[in-house]
Amino acid sequence: MAEASRSRVPLLLSLPALLFFAALLVTPLVMIAVLSFQSFDLATGATGGATLSNFADTLGDPYYHTIFLRTVGIALATTVLCVLIGAPEAYFLSRMRAPWRSIFLIVTLSPLLISVVVRTLGWALLFGRNGVINNVASGLGLTSAPIPMLYTIQGVVIALVHVAVPFMIISVWAALQRLDPKVVRAAQSLGAGETTIFIRIILPQIVPGILSGSLIVFALAASAFATPAIIGGRQLKVVATATYDEFLGTLNWPLGAAIAIVLLIVNATIMLTYNRLLERRYARFAQ
């Protein structure tokens, strides 16, 4: 009797969180999924029924192909840049001395303290034709014509990297904390220089951290809305902004829902495949 009731305790304890999760995440998700199978009429909106036509539109239209490829491309570029910037940065931070380490860690994470909209508008001010960067560059005589940055893919990627790089740093930082610091000394005593130590000893051990950081960054970048909406503008659509337009512009909710579901599936597939590939490779020595 006591045994049976005790085994129910964990379930009961996690029940509030489960209900919360179900109410706020699973329910809307299921509603979107249901919506994506409904047919649409310009006059009456979503009309119920079960049809695959929304998915056929999404998957068959070259217009959406471009948007999906652009989204995945932006997410990939953002992820690669975050790895290249975030992993060494976390390593340098971890090698700093006592007061500086925490000071610079906070500085690095500080973008997370500012609203994403405010941050992105800041980038828009920097990027514009008459923005800070172009004014400085032409003032110094470095450029004759303004460099296009606002409303370009490069501009979106730069702003997304700024948003996402703290997540990479946190993730790699956590992996570095698990590292035995004596391992670096052992490598030094065996004759390895700083670069060799980073590439041969540190990097392979923080790959799990880079992997999980990449997953977070990719997911954030692929589903980002505010940054592509502000920096990319009306022309440079990504999946999230296209979904927004279907819902609130053309009011074609079922099509918008179908686009969102396809993005979810693409995102989940890429992440799971990536995760499995790398985890298999690094499972043999990871704790």
Partner: peptide, 17 residues
């Protein structure tokens, strides 16, 4: 790295990978 000394650490400090 230039001293050529062999060191054995308390935590062993083996390269886990």
């Amino acid at each position: 790295s230039q001293r050529g000394m062999g060191i054995v650490f308390q935590s062993y400090a083996l390269f886990p990978h």
